[in-house]
Amino acid sequence: MPDWNSPAELALEASAFAKLMHALAGLYFWEVATSFSFDWQFITGKKKFHWPLIFYFLGRYLLVFAMIGILTALDVTIEVNCQALYTFNQLVGQATIGLASINLAIRTMILWAQNLYIVVPLVLVILGHWSLILQGKPAPTCVLLKAEWVPGQGCVITKTNNTILAATFIYTMCFDLIVLVLTAAKLAFPRDQRSQLMNMLFRDGLIYFVIAFLSNLLATTFMELNLSAVMSIIFNVPSAIASTIVACRAVRRLSGWSSPGPEILYVCLWLSPLRQR
């Protein structure tokens, strides 16, 4: 087994991390570019904007800024404040994971017709989630990543707070599981006939949960292994990107959904009125 903290191994890890981040940035920028027409319809007013889209746009474009920040940290050739840059990247990246979970939770609230017995507990869970995410706020005792400028190498991650990072990812997995169970319960015991829309909501939610759960599990595993400062967080960004892409695609699918018959769900609170064929 290699010495993960030896200078030679750390150099290899840094190189692998940089290549992975560039590949992921290209993937995510491509995803945003190819689906920008959806966003443009709301920007230009062709589609009516509804408040739940706030979380869609925040998650989608905060991750763009996070990826730009990561690429800046990796490619900058002049000395910068690496600690401030990585604190920004970490906080914004964690926020995108929280926003992806919110998007899924709102869909579940829709399924339950905004039942307060469902909405209130979910809101409390969301607040708990963000209390962990905001542990990374820029204060000396709350910084989850430490980075410094090393001449000839650039910004280098020197230390990570794996306890809070792992707790955040585990909380995210539990949160997503709760939402999936609530969705499944609603569809398993419907008061009326299940609609095509309800089936689609569950199917998209299940796909999101599987992808997000596996990506979060991978990130948590490497954090708990704590092989080195770089290896501990190498899969955090893939997790954020996977969650955001799947959550945003689910939102766009719901917005573009059309039904052969009337639906009784409160979808108007989500994105746009249902289009009838």
Score class of each variant (00 low, 15 high):
residue 154 G to Y: 10
residue 231 M to V: 13
residue 222 F to N: 07
residue 180 L to V: 01
residue 134 L to V: 14
residue 137 K to S: 09
residue 202 F to E: 12
residue 196 Q to L: 15
residue 48 K to N: 02
residue 72 T to I: 12
residue 50 H to K: 01
residue 239 S to A: 11
residue 274 L to I: 05
residue 266 Y to C: 05
residue 244 T to I: 04
residue 233 I to G: 08
residue 202 F to I: 09
residue 167 A to C: 07
residue 239 S to C: 15
residue 3 D to A: 15
residue 183 T to N: 08
residue 159 K to Y: 10
residue 75 D to Q: 15
residue 229 A to S: 12
residue 135 Q to M: 11
residue 17 F to Y: 04
residue 46 K to I: 14
residue 124 L to F: 08
residue 76 V to P: 00
residue 129 H to C: 14
residue 2 P to H: 03
residue 190 P to D: 05
residue 206 L to G: 14
residue 26 G to T: 04
residue 153 Q to T: 05
residue 182 L to C: 11
residue 49 F to G: 02
residue 117 Y to K: 02
residue 18 A to N: 02
residue 236 N to H: 14
residue 192 D to K: 06
residue 22 H to N: 03
residue 262 P to M: 13
residue 197 L to W: 04
residue 90 Q to A: 13
residue 37 S to Y: 07
residue 215 S to W: 13
residue 43 I to Q: 11
residue 20 L to T: 00
residue 126 I to Y: 06
residue 20 L to K: 00
residue 135 Q to I: 14
residue 238 P to M: 10
residue 209 F to L: 12
residue 239 S to W: 05
residue 264 I to P: 02
residue 174 C to S: 06
residue 199 N to S: 11
residue 178 I to C: 11
residue 189 F to C: 08
residue 255 S to L: 13
residue 118 I to A: 13
residue 128 G to P: 04
residue 72 T to H: 09
residue 42 F to P: 06
residue 156 V to D: 08
residue 117 Y to I: 12
residue 112 W to P: 05
residue 183 T to K: 01
residue 45 G to D: 12
residue 239 S to N: 13
residue 222 F to M: 10
residue 149 W to V: 15
residue 185 A to H: 03
residue 113 A to Y: 15
residue 32 V to H: 03
residue 138 P to Q: 09
residue 80 V to Y: 08
residue 129 H to Y: 06
residue 164 I to R: 00
residue 264 I to W: 11
residue 216 N to I: 08
residue 91 L to S: 02
residue 77 T to R: 05
residue 66 A to P: 03
residue 163 T to Y: 07
residue 81 N to H: 02
residue 257 W to K: 01
residue 39 D to M: 11
residue 67 M to D: 05
